[in-house]
């Protein structure tokens, strides 16, 4: 039997934790993308076990400094975007708009950095055809780069939306979904960076 006390605690907890960030649908997209990337991570790890020398040689040719810089850019972007989401929910559209613009700038920095890194590697003669390490490196960071591009465009759209659209539940949902997508891109890079550059 439930006493009235435990019941009220239960309902209070249920009420407290019923929140779904963004909306339910975007979590289907996030879960799907996480599963696809999990397959990519496992493929990298298996390839590493099959050809340790090829992977060690490929890794040694990467500039870890550029990789760290890109990680810091995305993390800082996440911090700015999360601040933008908080600010937008408080109704301060103009300030939120600036945060999303700064987040988009981090995304552009990431893309520029990738361009520098890739063109350097290609000048050295590396290509996806060189060996299995470069195949995984170019394809998976390429797929991720496409995500960064989408995220950057989304942040620019949010920046505009926050200065133009009125605050409210519709804008909150749009803004939260954008934040979630950006953080997804960030956390996928964290694992890719560890598997491709660090190990």
């Amino acid at each position: 039997m439930q006493t009235p006390d435990t019941m009220s605690i239960a309902t209070a907890q249920a009420h407290h934790s019923a929140r779904v960030p963004g909306e339910a649908g975007i979590w289907i997209f996030i879960a799907g993308d996480l599963l696809a990337f999990t397959l990519f991570f496992v493929l990298i790890a298996l390839g590493n076990g099959d050809q340790p020398q090829v992977f060690a040689r490929g890794r040694a040719s990467l500039d870890i400094g550029l990789g760290v810089a890109n990680t810091l850019l995305l993390l800082t972007g996440s911090w700015l975007v999360a601040a933008g989401v908080e600010t937008s929910r408080k109704g301060a559209g103009r300030a939120a708009s600036r945060y999303f613009l700064a987040g988009a700038a981090c995304g552009l920095g990431f893309i520029a950095n990738k361009f520098i890194e890739w063109s350097h590697l290609i000048r050295l003669g590396a290509s996806p055809q060189t060996d299995d390490f470069y195949m995984f490196f170019f394809v998976f960071t390429g797929i991720h780069l496409f995500h960064v591009l989408l995220g950057t465009v989304y942040m620019l759209v949010l920046s505009r939306a926050c200065s133009k659209r009125p605050a409210g539940p519709e804008r909150d949902r749009f803004v939260e979904c954008g934040g979630l997508f950006w953080h997804l891109v960030d956390l996928l890079w964290i694992v890719l960076f560890a598997l491709l550059y660090l190990i």
Partner: peptide, 22 residues
């Protein structure tokens, strides 16, 4: 709405198909 997101996810999963050329 979640059907809309599931469609976007499907589009993302089709994308690596273009790798077959390389």
């Amino acid at each position: 709405r979640w059907v809309g997101y599931a469609n976007l996810w499907a589009a993302v999963l089709f994308a690596p198909g273009q790798m077959v050329l390389f």
